[in-house]
Design a protein around this nucleic acid. Structure first.
Length: 418
DNA sequence: AATGCGTGGTC
DNA sequence: TGACCAAGCAT
């Protein structure tokens, strides 16, 4: 359904924008609407043609590549994605190859990138494209959104970038840009805020080359209209920016509240038998589902259990009798709203077989460790073990963090909006 | 609507 | 040092 420009301008939310109702027309006008959208669009396009970064997924309009890149880029920086994207495309150059692969191979290429449900969904979606669409990507937003892992934004991105459909997009960059253009001081994360932004996105996307235009919006948000230091002097659409006119760039968009971080302490045990280590595949529904890890369990915060206690825990977790040895390494790992302190011990197998009712276990030699998808901490531990030629006799400590000296940032956070 | 899901970089 | 952020989605 098409929403007319009038809707957004008359929106009650818009009254929070700082642009009050114009006496003569009774319609509030943000600067971007003042002379129609054409001059704004032209200026943005002109800038993009000169300043677009060259990124691997911008070299083609292959929906497969666009799709993979968009999934990888969800909540993930361009810098982090580039090497993963190139490796992924090299290994799985077509949706058919991806669909035919085992899920474990997909996870292996995703290892370290985070949000692993994306990898599992990408694999499922590839099978849907092959099985239900004959290997050809659907072109409409609605059909794209049926694919697992493809939501409203990603569907709009694929539809516009790959098929030149005039689909609206709202993600982190455009959200910030739209809020500032509109001078919108409300909370963009509420349902009402989202309606406003998607409505604006629909109005601003043109019918001529909408894909290029949407990318230009995002590029501006990514490289000029940044969260902490918007480069207004070099902004090509400064004339049309409500936040800039009001000098409210730092207050808009309204900052989100961050949840508290919970400290967690865990113990991992590298159980060795004849040069092989015991790994467990993390179960569906668990964090890092589908990835392999050393035997691992939480202990009381700050507690440092004696060896006999750890051996009891290992028996509970695996059914094995082991001798827990010295501390191999301790590391810290941030996970969403948790920060995990992980103490990894070496242990020797003594008796018993892994109890398959408690999970999927495998004894893996050093070479095998390179092939399986491991959790990030599991990979660090595995590298340590490999560097010892499989002999887990030395104790090595890794400092939890490298240190860097930095200045403070200066983003003003406004009081919670009313 | 609120929560869970990762990791690395920046200041 | 730690808070904040990043081309969101699913439930």
């Amino acid at each position: 359904m098409k929403i007319e420009p009038f809707d957004i301008r008359a929106s009650s939310l818009f009254r929070h924008s700082g642009f009050d109702i114009h006496h003569s027309t009774a319609v509030p006008i943000a600067p971007v609407f003042r002379e129609g959208l054409a001059p704004f669009r032209k200026a943005l396009r002109h800038w993009y043609r000169r300043h677009a970064r060259s990124l691997p997924w911008r070299h083609s309009v292959d929906p497969y590549r666009i799709w993979i890149s968009e999934i990888m880029l969800q909540q993930t920086t361009v810098t982090a994605v580039v090497p993963y994207f190139e490796r992924f495309i090299e290994r799985f150059s077509t949706v058919h190859l991806l669909a035919a692969a085992p899920e474990q191979d997909v996870l292996r290429l995703w290892e370290g990138l985070g949000y692993y449900s994306r990898a599992r969904n990408i694999h499922r979606a590839a099978r849907v494209v092959v099985d239900r669409h004959g290997g050809t990507f659907p072109e409409s937003v609605e059909a794209l959104q049926e694919l697992p892992g493809v939501g409203r934004y990603t569907a709009g991105a694929i539809a516009s970038f790959a098929f030149d459909r005039p689909a609206p997009i709202v993600e982190a960059n455009t959200l910030r840009l739209y809020c500032r253009l509109l001078g919108f001081r409300g909370d963009p994360r509420t349902a009402a805020g989202q309606r406003l932004l998607w409505s604006f996105a629909e109005q601003i996307v043109p019918h001529r080359s909408p894909g290029q235009f949407n990318q230009a919006l995002m590029e501006l948000g990514a490289t000029r209209c940044t969260p902490d230091a918007p480069d207004c002097p070099r902004c090509p659409v400064r004339r049309w920016c409500g936040a800039c006119a009001l000098n409210l760039q730092r207050q808009i968009p309204q900052a989100a509240r961050r949840p508290a971080i919970t400290e967690v302490t865990e113990v991992a045990v590298a159980i060795e038998r004849d040069g092989r280590y015991l790994l467990r595949k993390r179960a569906p529904g668990e964090r890092w589902a589908g990835l392999w890890d050393f035997v691992r369990f939480p202990v009381d915060q700050g507690d440092n259990p004696r060896r006999s206690r750890l051996e009891q825990r290992v028996a509970d977790e695996t059914g094995l009798g082991v001798d827990v040895g010295e501390l191999l390494t301790q590391l810290r790992h941030g996970v969403t709203r948790y920060r995990i302190t992980l103490r990894c011990h070496i242990a020797r197998w003594r008796t018993g077989k892994p109890d398959s009712s408690r999970g999927e276990f495998r004894w893996v030699a050093d070479q095998g460790l390179g092939e399986l998808p491991l959790s990030v901490t599991g990979r660090k531990i595995a590298k340590l073990l490999e560097s010892h030629d499989g002999k887990a006799s030395k104790t090595v400590r890794i400092e939890p963090r490298a240190k860097k000296k930095r200045g403070r940032r200066n983003r003003e956070t406004p009081p919670p909006g009313v």
